[in-house]
Structures are given as structure tokens and as C-alpha cells.
Design a protein around this nucleic acid. Structure first.
Lengths: 140, 140
DNA sequence: CGTGAACTGGTAACGGTTTTCATCTGCAGC
DNA sequence: GCTGCAGATGAAAACCGTTACCAGTTCACG
């Protein structure tokens, strides 16, 4: 264990499948959703394995995870690995990465004001994107 | 349905128990937690019933609900029924209600900038409160 | 009191996620 | 090319919070 995690990533068909599908997706997607689409594409990956890869990608910081109101976990590969938040379309799920010094400052200030330290925060903005509000029909 | 739902709220021992325990709690608590404490106090309320009351309190807007990272639902009775956010202690769970025009404005601006409409947002700030950072022992 | 609608709560069902464990497979090293 | 094996896989079972079911209880009102 002195030597970090030894041979960390053995390249496998499954790992590549999950990562590339995630990369090709523009919005947040659930594990089951990814699992289903992979199967549909004829490149099936066990559900357990999908979860395993998502988990390590999240741990590694290359994928962001958030929870829906009803507790389901959604994943998304983000271009920017620095701290950022999301603007998500409630209709089509498309997400845009946004950053805002304003919020960061506000969070820090509010926390300090109440004697809180070691502050962290979760901020997600949901709305209806231009495309979706243009064509009200849930398409597909 | 002209006459709203008739005698909507019949005051029951269980309902009072849940509401008052919630009222006496300063932080977010899980349904199971509330259920356990009520039982401990000798004022047991069925788990199903606890969930039912929490549900309607949330619907009625007098209680706020949020999800932990691992998908568990937490509830809290808030003094202010207007829009607000929370500053939660990651150690003891105590929560402070905070409001910030800054965030609201930021969210609106960011959304507009990307063509999103009908915007909503979730913002939670977590940190360690003064008391907890003073006495590092997780007490009780 | 009597009646019925609202409420209660034990138990079963649910759905997403994690664990288990027997099997398989990259990837050295020969 | 083979071989050995640590790491990877995945079907099935376990978990766990939450919800549905439904028979039994309670309360308001006549």
C-alpha cells in the first residue's frame, strides 16, 4: 500500500464502454439508464460493473454525481475538473457547467457569519433550456 | 371537491408527537431517527405513520426536506416559510436558515445567460459549527 | 350511543444500490 | 505463444430507506 494503488486501471471492454458512453452524453444519467443503453447497443455491461466504474470515476473526480429528489443517483462526466456547479434542464436533462464566484463568496460569508468553518456547499440550478421551452412537446 | 378535503386534519396523539418532536429539534433528522426517538420516549408512533405525517407536513410547506449524499431523506421544521436555504453542521446536524439575494440573483443571471427559463435551484451549505469545531469529540 | 370517514401501524412489496463469490481476463513474465 | 494470477466481471442475494396494502382503531357528528 505504500505504492499507491498498484496497477490501478486495467483497460477492459466494460470500462471503456461506460466511460465513452458517459463522454458522449450531455446530461446527467442514472446507472440503470447507462446500463440499459449499453445493453441496447449490444455492448452490455453488468449493472454491478456499471456501478463500480461510476463509483471509481466519481472518486477520481472525473465524474460528478448528484441525487434526484427521489433519491436516485445521476452521473455526468464534466469537462472542467475544477469546482463548478450545474445548470440542468428539467425536461431533457442537458447540463451546462457554470461557475460563480458570487455563490462561493456568499457561501463563505454566510458560514463565517454564523461561526461555521471548513465549509462546503452543493448548488444546482434547474430550469427549462431554450430548446425545450421552444418545442414544448417532450419530443422523442 | 368543492368543499376542500373535509375535516382534513384530525388531531391525533401521533400527529402531535411527530410535530412537536420536529419542533424541538434544531437540525435535520431522518424519519427513522424520529421514529426511534419517539419510541425511546415511550410515545411510539408507527414508522408508516411517521412517514405519512412528514409527507403531509412537507406538502403543506411547514417542513423542509433534503437528501443526504447517500439518498436518505432528512426533515426539518423551518421557522421561515419563505424561500430560504440552509447552513448545516456536518457534525451535529444543527441547521441555520439563511437567505441570500446574492445567490438568487446569481442563479437567475446564469440561467438567463444560457437561455434557461422557469428557474429553480437547490443550495445547501455544510460546514462545522462553532460548538463542534471547539469540542472535536462527536459527543453523544 | 351508532356510524362512517379518517387515521394507524404491522407487514409485504418496491426500487435503487451494494455485497458476495465463483468465474473470467488483461497483462506480465517466461 | 503459453501460463499464472491479481484484478475485473456479473448473476444473484442481501440491504435499506421508503411506499403500498389493508384490517383494525379512533374520533367527530348526528
Amino acid at each position: 500500500m505504500t505504492t499507491a494503488r498498484a496497477g490501478r486501471a486495467r483497460s477492459t471492454r466494460q470500462g471503456v464502454a461506460v466511460e465513452s458512453l458517459l463522454e458522449a452524453s450531455s446530461g446527467f444519467r442514472s446507472a440503470q439508464d447507462l446500463h440499459a443503453e449499453l445493453r441496447r447497443r449490444g455492448d452490455a455491461v453488468g449493472l454491478t460493473t456499471v456501478y463500480r466504474h461510476l463509483q471509481s470515476l466519481v472518486d477520481g473526480g472525473s465524474v460528478d454525481m448528484l441525487r434526484t429528489v427521489d433519491g436516485e443517483a445521476l452521473y455526468r462526466q464534466c469537462a472542467d475538473s475544477r469546482h463548478h456547479h450545474h445548470l440542468v434542464c428539467r425536461r431533457c436533462g442537458t447540463a451546462v457547467e457554470v461557475s460563480g464566484q458570487a455563490v462561493e463568496r456568499w457561501a463563505g460569508a454566510v458560514a463565517r457569519e454564523h461561526g461555521f468553518t471548513d465549509v462546503d456547499h452543493t448548488v444546482e440550478v434547474v430550469g427549462t433550456c431554450g430548446e425545450c421551452s421552444a418545442g414544448p412537446a417532450p419530443s422523442s
